[in-house]
Design a protein around this nucleic acid. Sequence first.
DNA 1: AAGCGAACCTGGCTGC
DNA 2: TGCAGCCAGGTTCGCT
Length: 293
Amino acid sequence: MPELPEVETVRRGLEPAMVGTVITSVEQRRPNLRFPFPANFPDRLRDQSVIGLGRRAKYLLADLSSGDVLIMHLGMSGRFLIEAKDERSRPGVYHYEAGGDRRHDHVVFHLGNGLTVTYNDARRFGFMVLVPRAELLQHPLIAKLGIEPLGNELDAELLARLMAGRQAPLKAALMDQGLISGLGNIYVCEALHRAGLSPARAAGSLVTTAGRPTAGARRLAIAIRDVLSEAVAAGGSSLRDYAQPNGSLGYFQHGFRVYDREREPCPTPGCRGTIARMTQAGRSTFFCASCQR
DNA sequence: AAGCGAACCTGGCTGC
DNA sequence: TGCAGCCAGGTTCGCT
């Protein structure tokens, strides 16, 4: 599920519930997700205050008073649910409404403010790791991440530099978290369509022989920023059963122009093409062969 | 070195 | 209704 906009939406949903409160206890209901939980995981969280909740790429980073950072990744199907322990005490404030299979509630954080935050992950590709704050940037999960696409660095020049010399399909290069971190299958398809670039062309084709960004590179840098910021503003996309922590649904999936729209007419003004689907590196790519070159 | 396919795990949908 | 087969937002590993 979650690419950068969804993770940022989750962060914004969890922040008011968790930051500034204390974790009174943690229920860890299985030994592992994608990886084993850290040793003594509940003990290391108990009685810690949550000082801040940040995000790097698709990782949530909870800063704890113990000096540890709790790194959390949602994998494909991870989500958080916020509930009031006593619904009557906070009527209508936080209420889990979206459907969900509670058999996959793997971690429950009990908070000092009376709320519980539950991590649910059917496929268990997500994980949680504890790292001392001073070691965070050296941690293998974090150290190799590329630039934040919504940060200040991403422009046509940097994009061209990152893609220069690469023979890999442009789509694959954009999915490479070591180059740009936070894009996934959906938003890469969307950004490439907005930029009018074929997912199959070589990444290095965004650079002129003089080493300058092509016009396509300029369009793509803007398209990446636009599609991500629009999706964040819309509260992310709700595919299948994904919901925001408060149970409400993101609605950016209505803004998809190509993703999961195989055989539909291309939405580009004046384009008479049809959205097609192909497989690249084992993942579905949705694109318009007519206006994406 | 870079790039591809498989693997991790479960659930939902489609089609017979 | 049942069941087999295929598909899914991510990441890592091992083999070209």
